[in-house]
């Protein structure tokens, strides 16, 4: 599965469009991490726990998007975008979406 935020992949032709596919996940912060982050807010710097959390969440959103595209029979997702929305204090939704297409070639 080719996943890209380009509109066209150079050298490859789009032979079929399957429409929009998306994947999302809602994540909440861990209390322990929250307390640690509170302390880290005094000295500043990277909040590694949160970085990992966001990374995992995006990974999952992308995987869900890919699963949807696969069920349609697509071999690529183009024009991928991400969106993050905070739903409540400490909880956020991460959304990945793009266009499922069939590209010619291998």
């Amino acid at each position: 599965m080719l996943v890209s935020n380009l509109e066209l992949v150079p050298g490859r032709r789009i032979v079929a469009h399957y429409g929009i596919v998306q994947g999302s996940t809602v994540r909440a912060k861990h209390v322990g991490k929250d307390i640690f982050a509170g302390l880290k807010n005094i000295v500043g710097g990277e909040l590694k726990g949160y970085t990992e959390l966001m990374q995992e969440a995006r990974q999952e959103a992308v995987e869900r998007m890919i699963a949807e595209a696969q069920s349609m029979g697509a071999n690529a997702i183009l024009n991928v975008r991400f969106a993050t929305t905070s739903i409540a204090a400490g909880a956020a939704e991460i959304l990945a979406y793009g266009s499922a297409v069939q590209l010619d070639g291998p």
Partner: peptide
């Protein structure tokens, strides 16, 4: 840029990313 330089014919294209959460100090 949205399109690759003229002479680049890609063999492979894939999504890459980097993320960081950073905090201000008191």
């Amino acid at each position: 840029v949205r399109f690759p330089p003229d002479r680049v014919t890609p063999q492979r294209a894939f999504l890459v990313h980097g993320t960081v959460v950073i905090s201000s100090d008191y």
